[in-house]
Design a protein around this nucleic acid. Structure first.
Lengths: 115, 115
DNA sequence: ACAATAGTACGACAGTCACCGTACTACGCA
DNA sequence: TGCGTAGTACGGTGACTGTCGTACTATTGT
């Protein structure tokens, strides 16, 4: 069972997370799709970048994950060649109670409506 | 008491409002400031563009109000030389229950924390 | 009719964004 | 040691963003 590797990844501390950055991160369909997927995982569970099948190139996937991480929406750790991604639910809920759930619910409602 | 003038202004219908556009509209500090202000008004009340003192030029103000309108966050009607702006609370609450309030609460929480 | 007020249209500019491909690194495994 | 896999770095591209100033339109009040 492989363990986390010592490659550094910058994350904003909880207090550094800015609402505007979070909203901006969530305002993109691809990133929202990522968040939607990560939200289906259990508390503390993580998934690799490639676990979500996005219809975009590898480099663009990297880009979107970085935006999410730098906004403080997800946390990322290397584990071998893979990178595990998890929602920063605790931090987001502490800072902006209900925000994540409301956005996810809004997203679900919209997806139910259109298409 | 002056009445609404017949200059046309495009608004998305309720069903046309897209979550991504709303989040994008709210992800800007200036626009969030506008929404914050409009939220202090009573149900159905409206304010002119210049009622909010934004530290930006007139043309940029126009730009931000258009983004908000086209995203479906606010409605605008001309009344004489002025343009009255109001939050589309009913529509937003119907489509995305709790979203507006949660974002406003998150904004308030953040403003309490920083600065 | 004219002046003042409120906002628009337009063009410009620098910066960011989403996206790509190609070449690369880091790691696990045989 | 070498191969395959997962993701990164870099450079580039076209589109969009936030900002401005200047010149304009629409409306009200004198």
């Amino acid at each position: 069972m492989p363990i986390a590797t010592a490659r550094p990844l910058e994350h904003p501390a909880r207090e550094e997370i800015r609402l505007e950055a979070v909203l901006h991160a969530l305002a993109d369909p691809m990133r929202l799709q990522v968040v939607r997927f990560l939200a289906t995982l259990g508390e503390g569970e993580a998934a690799t970048c490639s676990a979500i099948d996005l219809a975009i190139s590898k480099s663009t996937v990297t880009h979107h994950f970085r935006v999410l991480r730098e906004a403080g929406v997800i946390s990322q750790v290397y584990r071998g060649t893979a990178k595990m991604n998890a929602l920063r639910r605790r931090d987001l809920d502490a800072l902006f109670p209900g925000l994540l759930d409301t956005v996810l619910a809004a997203d679900a409602a919209q997806r139910r409506r259109v298409r």
